[in-house]
Amino acid sequence: MLSEYYEQIEAVVLNLSLTALFLLMAYAVHDVLKKNDVPMAGRLVVYLVLFLGAAGFLAKGFIQVFWQSSGVG
């Protein structure tokens, strides 16, 4: 049974791992910004960049699913 769903399990684990990685990066960045007393404008820029990186991975995933469902890739 495991061999039937191997690719699906691999995709789910990869997505969960990337989510955990982005959450850990956000926590580390938050901790560094808090300890160094960074102004609010700087924090917003850093969080925006981190969010855009995560949004890029989400967009890639949606595009990949869309292309595979339409038979392009």
Score class of each variant (00 low, 15 high):
A11R: 15
V13P: 01
P39F: 04
L18F: 08
Y6Q: 13
D37Q: 08
G42E: 04
E4L: 05
L2D: 06
E7Y: 15
M40P: 02
L33R: 01
V32I: 15
Y27K: 07
L33Q: 01
L23C: 10
V38H: 00
D37S: 07
A28M: 03
L33M: 15
Y27N: 05
Y5S: 00
L24I: 06
E4W: 03
D37C: 03
A11I: 09
N36P: 00
Y27W: 06
L18Y: 02
E7F: 15
A28L: 06
L23P: 01
T19W: 11
A20D: 04
K34Q: 12
L24K: 05
H30Q: 12
H30F: 12
L2G: 13
D31R: 15
E7A: 15
T19C: 11
S3D: 03
V13H: 09
L18D: 01
M25R: 11
D31N: 14
M25Y: 06
L33V: 10
H30N: 15
I9F: 08
A28V: 03
H30D: 07
L18W: 02
L21C: 05
A41R: 13
N15V: 06
N15F: 11
V13F: 09
P39G: 05
V13I: 14
K34M: 10
E4P: 00
I9N: 03
I9A: 07
D31L: 12
E7L: 15
L21F: 06
L33C: 05
V32G: 04
T19G: 06
V32K: 13
L18S: 02
T19V: 13
A28S: 04
L18C: 04
V13R: 14
M40I: 11
H30R: 14
K35S: 09
M40C: 05
V32L: 14
A20M: 07
L16S: 07
L24P: 00
A11M: 13
Y27R: 08
S17Y: 10
S3K: 03
K35Y: 07
I9M: 09
G42C: 05
D31T: 14
A20K: 07
Y5D: 01
A41L: 14
M40D: 12
D37K: 08
L23F: 10
N36G: 02
V12P: 00
E4V: 02
N36F: 10
Y5I: 00
V32E: 12
G42K: 02
K34C: 05
T19D: 10
V13Q: 12
N36L: 11
A26H: 00
L16C: 06
A28I: 03
P39I: 03
A28K: 07
